[in-house]
Simulated scan of single mutants.
Amino acid sequence: MPLAATFSATLMTKDGVRIDAAHTPSRGDAGLGIVLAHGFTGSWREPTTRRIAHVLSGFGGVVAFDFRGHGRSGGLSTVGDAEVLDMDAAVVHARSVGYARVATVGFSMGAAVAVRHAALHGGTDAVVAVSGPARWYYRGTRPMRQVHWAIEKAPGRLAARLAKRTRIRSTSWDPVPLAPHEAVARVSPAPLLIVHGDADHFFPLEHAHQLFEAAREPKELWIEPGYGHAESAATPDLVRRIGRWISRLSPAREVDR
């Protein structure tokens, strides 16, 4: 089946950053919008993210976007801090095109942003955090040590810009933003779903458990056997199960995906 049609959009954040976005209209519940947030160095234009948007559009309309410093969006990446403003712009856009209920789905860095956005800005009816970190500065795996090299060192930032079109701010956080495990309790009363793979090579399961233990009800934790990390490892079956979980907001006929 060909991917669902998408319509490009340009959003503006409250701090004046232009955000490249796309709207995939709902093929399921016309009143449900899903804001889809990619991981670090990702983009809504990548095939993996577009396939996820296509599957989710069987349950509700999807607004996908590029975080600041990524792809065709403006600004510089702050790796999870100011990105809450990018997600807020996407949530506002989803409301403006007519979705009465809006859920956010974030992968990896996007998961951290989804949690922090719901805690700090609200305006969401459900939150799904997939493969997300619980805390900052984690270097316990080789991939995360490589990520920190890309963020903290000038040669790493150059490599990220040339290879992945990701422009990263050179200055460090000041102050350090509220970490996901510190923010997650504020997501309630919106339902929270935490999804993590037992084969995640970036963040081990301790991150998922730390988030879940700090969260308040209503909450669910799915530990997925054999699942790796973020968008690239997400199967259509897993994405459909996430879509069904979100659709509990307003049960509607499921369409073919």
Rank of each mutant, 00 (worst) to 15 (best):
G33S: 14
R18L: 02
D20V: 10
T10W: 14
D29K: 09
A37T: 04
K14N: 03
H38S: 04
G31R: 15
A37I: 12
A37Y: 09
A30T: 14
V17W: 00
H38Q: 11
R18M: 05
R27H: 15
I19P: 11
I34L: 15
L11V: 00
D15H: 01
R18S: 07
G28L: 04
L32F: 06
G16S: 15
L11C: 00
G28K: 05
S26M: 13
D29N: 15
A37C: 14
G39K: 13
D20Q: 05
M12S: 07
M12Q: 11
A22I: 08
R18F: 07
H23Q: 03
G31N: 13
A9D: 11
H23V: 04
G16A: 15
G33Y: 13
I19A: 09
G16P: 10
G33R: 15
L11S: 00
T13Y: 04
A30Y: 03
A22F: 11
L11A: 11
P25A: 03
M12G: 09
S26V: 10
G31S: 12
A37M: 10
L36G: 01
R27M: 07
L36V: 00
F40G: 11
A37R: 01
T24P: 06
G16L: 09
R27C: 11
L36Q: 07
G16K: 10
D15N: 14
I34F: 07
D29F: 10
R18Q: 09
P25W: 12
T10F: 08
I19W: 02
D29V: 04
D29A: 15
V35S: 05
F40Y: 15
G39N: 08
H23A: 12
T13K: 06
L11E: 03
M12D: 03
I19T: 13
L11P: 01
L32P: 08
V35A: 06
V35R: 05
P25L: 02
L32H: 02
A21W: 00
D15L: 07
T13F: 03
F40H: 12
G28I: 06
R27F: 13
L36R: 00
M12F: 00
D20M: 03
F40V: 13
V17H: 02
G31P: 08
R18V: 03
I19M: 11
G28Q: 08
R18T: 09
D15M: 04
G33W: 15
I34S: 04
G16T: 10
R27I: 01
A21Y: 02
G28Y: 01
T13N: 06
R27Q: 11
K14Q: 02
